[in-house]
Design a protein around this nucleic acid. Structure first.
Lengths: 178, 178
DNA sequence: GTGCGAAGTCAACAAGTGTTGGCCTACAAT
DNA sequence: ATTGTAGGCCAACACTTGTTGACTTCGCAC
């Protein structure tokens, strides 16, 4: 039984996302990805050309930040971030490899500048301090993901979504409005 | 000109720290470390046995958290963390590889439990919520390091120590006392 | 000077990596 | 039934990695 070209490409991409998210760029082997997709490693090269290009495709990512009332931005951002992380492997892919890979780090900077900053500007109407505000917000949210999902600090793993929202949202709110 | 055994071992360890901090465990090659130390790769093995053991030695780390008056803990912790990061490569070594290496992640959990938590307990006198409080503090401080030193978000890189202390210390203070 | 042990080098290994090119083989159109 | 083509596989390449063991050389004690 044979798969269509687009089908196979999608299967490979899904397997790649999973592996990159779980293991990071270097430890996610073309052979391992191919095995997950039940396919020969050569096919991965045929469809994506190169491991770097495969990663670029797997790291495609949109935060899909919602419009938010300014006084609930903190709560909304923390909750949205947590749900996005758990629903979409893209963020984990980027964080897992951005730490040791300049291209992935650059991608995260681009997301900060292209997706987070515009929201902060529209929320605060203050283009001057928006870059710093956006970075501070990102620092706390990425720190959350790091300690809960990557380093797995036990209290962060045990905490519920609502507890985390309650603790972190005032921080985010202050970074946006103070 | 020949070096003594202990001298050589120290030179290797210093080179290893630098490489592990800059590149992470996998990309920091025994050969690269040896070249930095102007020595044959075989010597590294002779002195440390194995790459894993060399890493364990290079990742030895003490936060050296100071005693702090409870009402200035936020300011003190942020400032101490920033200075410690810049003075000692140990933290960078751990963060750069903890993201894709379970042993290093475990080490960070140990530091959280063995060094941060005790301070939080002595600061708050509340052993019940100390684990969560300590984790929240760590999440913001590690997020800071991540965005400033690893991902290099431009506004975080440009900010001065005092600006960062001013922004982050209320957060830390609240995680400790609220 | 002669040894001898410690400090250092060299060459090679086995395993794993991304990547390539040639070869099959199923399937739909003719 | 034949055949062309697109999907798939296999074996091998060139290279890098950690690691090993045999060999060399320096410098001090006698």
């Amino acid at each position: 039984m044979r798969r269509s070209s687009t089908e196979t490409k999608a299967v490979i991409l899904a397997a790649a996302r999973e592996r990159f998210a779980a293991d990071g760029y270097d430890k996610a082997t073309i052979r391992a990805i191919a095995a997950d997709a039940r396919i020969d490693p050569a096919m991965v090269m045929r469809y994506f050309g190169t491991k770097e290009k495969l990663f670029a495709a797997a790291a495609e990512f949109d935060l899909e930040l919602p419009e938010l009332p300014a006084d609930q931005a903190g709560v909304g951002l923390v909750r949205h971030f947590l749900r996005k992380w758990e629903a979409d492997e893209g963020l984990q892919v980027l964080l897992r490899t951005g730490v040791t890979n300049e291209a992935a780090a650059e991608r995260m900077r681009t997301i900060l500048g292209g997706q987070v900053m515009p929201l902060v500007i529209s929320l605060t109407g203050d283009p001057e301090r928006a870059p710093l505000r956006a970075s501070l917000v990102a620092s706390q949210l990425l720190g959350l993901a790091l300690s809960r999902y990557i380093l797995k600090f036990p209290p962060m793993v045990a905490a519920t979504e609502e507890e985390l929202v309650a603790w972190l949202s005032p921080t985010i709110q202050r970074y946006l409005t103070e």
